[in-house]
Amino acid sequence: MNKVIYKEQLSEDVFLMRLEAPLIAEEREAGQFIMLQIDEDFGERIPLTIADADEKEGSITIIFQIVGKSTKELAKFKVGDFIPTLVGPLGKPTHIENFGTVVCIGGGIGVAPLHPIAQALKKAGNHVITIIGARNKDLIILEKEMDAIADELIICTDDGSYGRKALVTEPLKEICERDPKPNMAIAIGPPVMMKFCSETTKPYKVFTQVSLNTIMVDGTGMCGGCRVNVGDEVKFVCVDGPEFDGHKVDFDNMITRLGSYKKIEHDKSECNLEKEAAKKEAEL
């Protein structure tokens, strides 16, 4: 049972909540996630990244987008309500060190998991370049927080309603062409976005880390539902990840697997990049 102690609506269907979870707040590191259920008997266990934590208050922050039943119900929880089931921190923490210059690319809700990583990277002494992308102005989250961390902040919208009218891959490519090129990139967002970011950096040999959001059941390595192909190996995202080398991840298979239950659930999270990608693939 974890109490909701703060709630804020960040955009039309994105919410931020601070939840009481003292032990998790103490142990968590950047890159880790929790799983929660909105009903102990019948609820689904949904994974959400720990976007921030406050050890003194004993709280963690989650930022989530309404995409289906569980997130829709979760958005109805009010301050003072209790989340019946919440477990974490799960997954391996992000490996943080001073790499030099790191490009952090966040797409849509992906900015939420990116934030604690960018923060940790900055703290470790990196030069942090941040690219935030969204469909339109209203869907941009955490701009202020990211601005506070980043040495350079680039904002793109698909419709040009704010910042540059571009997909995040455009500025990413430009940055890769700089001399010296960045030492590393981290991309978090819709799978298609991570796929194209990885493809963008590959010719420049800029190591690109991605954080995969596969379907999960237990989150502790017991079911194998979260498995993905990484290079020649099969990895379990919940215990081996969630972060992997984007140049090795088989995104197409991952995207297919995310649609396993599509008949039963509908997908609102489709972004223009996905449509763009579909078009691109149709042309080929």
């Binding site: 909105i38 009903d39 008997d41 019948f42 609820g43 689904e44 266990r45 039943k69 569980s70 059941v217 237990d218 017991m222 079911c223 194998g224 539902g225 498995r227 993905v228 192909n229 099969v234 088989d250 298979n253 297919t256 697997r257 649609g259 396993s260």
Partner: peptide, 28 residues
């Protein structure tokens, strides 16, 4: 890794622990 290949663990966990057999009530 095609859709439709599951470990028995996953299949049984969905059915038992997450009560997916109860299609009218379970979210999983």
């Amino acid at each position: 890794n095609l859709v439709g290949v599951f470990s028995a663990n996953e299949y049984l966990t969905r059915a038992n622990l997450m009560r997916a057999f109860d299609k009218d009530h379970a979210d999983t």
